[in-house]
């Protein structure tokens, strides 16, 4: 009996030792965490699904009837990226799917695949601007016609009325040694302040198209400037060589006021 008790004691002591040994390494972490969160995108919150009228700083009153743009993938940086070097800002969250956003429709739609990455604070978002990819519907591909977006509406200034319709195009002739195609095909760091945590979160994007036209001069369309044209129906349009497109392109890539990202608990 005594021997059995002693043997049980020894067995228990051995087990305790081994458990203590194993428990030694059970606690602690390397810090940080991986996160996965749903991502939705839609037009401006003030939009009503129809037209949107606004004024620009150049004195034009614009009524937008159509504003559709292809956005994505999205890369959320921990600090602002270098303008010369893509992806130098340390990406902590990414959403690697493209979404077609109707900036005049306030409804939110899921971005396929959501967003994932690591916890941290993002201060800038790089948004790629590519033509619709193979995952987009035939209708959207036809709508954007190989370009990154399409806008249509009417701009009025005084007595000048300029109906317009045209594509948002990346002008590849602007590529230089210091200005790569990749740099042209993105919003190089939309300003944000997003704290991604391990808690359950929802990521939302709203696109406000009013800033796209902030520095555009519709008079160049009316004046039939180089790279512009007028249809038989009196609607003005442009190509990639026009000054108007260059101004529109800059508006699309504005880093503040166009792309509003937010995080909310879910």
């Amino acid at each position: 009996m005594i021997h059995r008790i002693a043997r049980m004691k020894r067995t228990r002591q051995t087990a305790v030792c081994l458990l203590a040994l194993a428990a030694l390494a059970a606690c602690g972490s390397t810090g940080g965490a991986l996160v996965t969160l749903p991502f939705q995108a839609g037009g401006a919150a003030q939009a009503d699904g129809g037209s949107m009228t606004f004024s620009t700083s150049t004195g034009w009153t614009v009524t937008l009837d159509q504003a559709v743009i292809a956005l994505g993938p999205f890369y959320f940086n921990a600090f602002p990226p270098n303008t010369q070097t893509f992806r130098s800002g340390t990406v902590i969250i990414e959403a690697t799917e493209q979404v077609i956003v109707n900036a005049l429709d306030p409804a939110l739609y899921d971005v396929p695949g959501g967003a994932d990455g690591e916890t941290g604070t993002s201060v800038a978002v790089e948004i790629d601007l590519f033509p619709p990819d193979a995952t987009q519907s035939e209708a959207n591909q036809q709508l954007l016609g190989g370009n990154i977006g399409v806008v249509a509406g009417t701009a009025v200034k005084g007595s000048v009325v300029v109906p317009f319709r045209g594509s948002i195009i990346i002008n590849e002739s602007l590529v230089t040694a210091t200005n790569s195609l990749a740099a042209l095909q993105r919003v190089n760091g939309a300003a944000v302040q997003l704290d991604f945590t391990a808690a359950q979160q929802q990521l939302t994007l709203r696109v406000d198209p009013t800033e796209w036209f902030e520095s555009t001069d519709f008079s160049s369309l009316a004046a039939h400037a180089s790279g512009t044209s007028e249809s038989d129906a009196g609607v003005y349009t442009w190509d990639e060589t026009s000054t108007f497109l260059n101004q529109l392109d800059q508006g699309v890539k504005v880093q503040a006021g166009v792309y509003e990202f937010s995080l909310s608990p879910r």
């Binding site: 993938p73 890369y75 990406v91």
Partner: peptide, 18 residues
């Protein structure tokens, strides 16, 4: 390992850690 890579295995670059 956990880090960022992009082997062009998807349509767009993958830049966040995985």
């Amino acid at each position: 390992f956990f880090y960022a890579s992009d082997f062009h295995s998807r349509a767009y670059p993958t830049l966040a850690p995985t």
